[in-house]
Simulated scan of single mutants.
Amino acid sequence: MERYKPLDFEFYTQPTLELARSLLGCLLVKETAKGTASGYIVETEAYAGPMDRAAHSYNNRRTKRTEIMFGESGSIYTYVMHTHCLVNVVCGGLDKPEAVLIRAVEPVDGIELMFDRRGTSTLKSLTSGPGKLTKALGITMDDYGGTFTMPPLYITEGITPDSVSIGPRIGIANSGEAASYPWRFWITRNPFVSR
Rank of each mutant, 00 (worst) to 15 (best):
E31F: 01
E31W: 00
A33P: 01
A33Q: 12
A33G: 08
A33C: 07
K34S: 14
K34E: 15
G35V: 01
T36P: 00
S38M: 10
S38E: 11
G39S: 02
G39D: 01
G39W: 03
G39P: 07
Y40I: 01
I41C: 13
V42W: 09
E43L: 00
T44I: 08
T44R: 07
A46Y: 03
Y47F: 09
P50F: 00
P50H: 01
M51T: 07
D52G: 09
R53D: 10
R53Y: 03
R53T: 04
H56F: 00
S57K: 13
N60F: 07
T63N: 01
T63D: 07
R65Y: 00
T66E: 06
E67D: 13
E67T: 09
I68K: 12
M69F: 03
M69E: 02
F70R: 14
G71F: 01
G71L: 00
E72S: 14
E72L: 14
E72R: 14
S73C: 09
S75W: 00
S75E: 11
Y77V: 12
Y79P: 08
V80F: 14
H82F: 15
H82C: 13
H84A: 12
H84R: 15
C85L: 07
C85Q: 02
L86N: 10
L86G: 03
L86I: 02
L86C: 09
V87R: 05
V87D: 01
N88F: 00
C91T: 15
G92S: 06
G93P: 08
L94W: 12
L94K: 11
K96I: 13
K96A: 14
P97A: 03
A99G: 13
L101G: 11
I102A: 07
R103V: 04
A104N: 13
A104G: 12
E106Y: 10
E106G: 04
V108S: 04
D109F: 04
D109T: 09
D109G: 04
G110N: 10
I111F: 05
E112K: 11
L113E: 11
M114G: 15
M114P: 11
M114V: 02
F115K: 10
D116E: 15
D116C: 15
D116M: 15
D116L: 15
R117Q: 14
R117S: 13
R118G: 02
R118M: 08
R118D: 06
G119N: 12
T120K: 15
S121P: 01
L123I: 07
L123F: 05
K124F: 05
L126S: 08
L126N: 04
S128N: 15
P130K: 13
P130I: 01
P130L: 05
P130H: 11
G131F: 07
K132F: 03
T134F: 08
T134K: 09
K135H: 07
K135V: 14
L137D: 06
L137I: 03
T140Y: 01
T140W: 08
T140I: 03
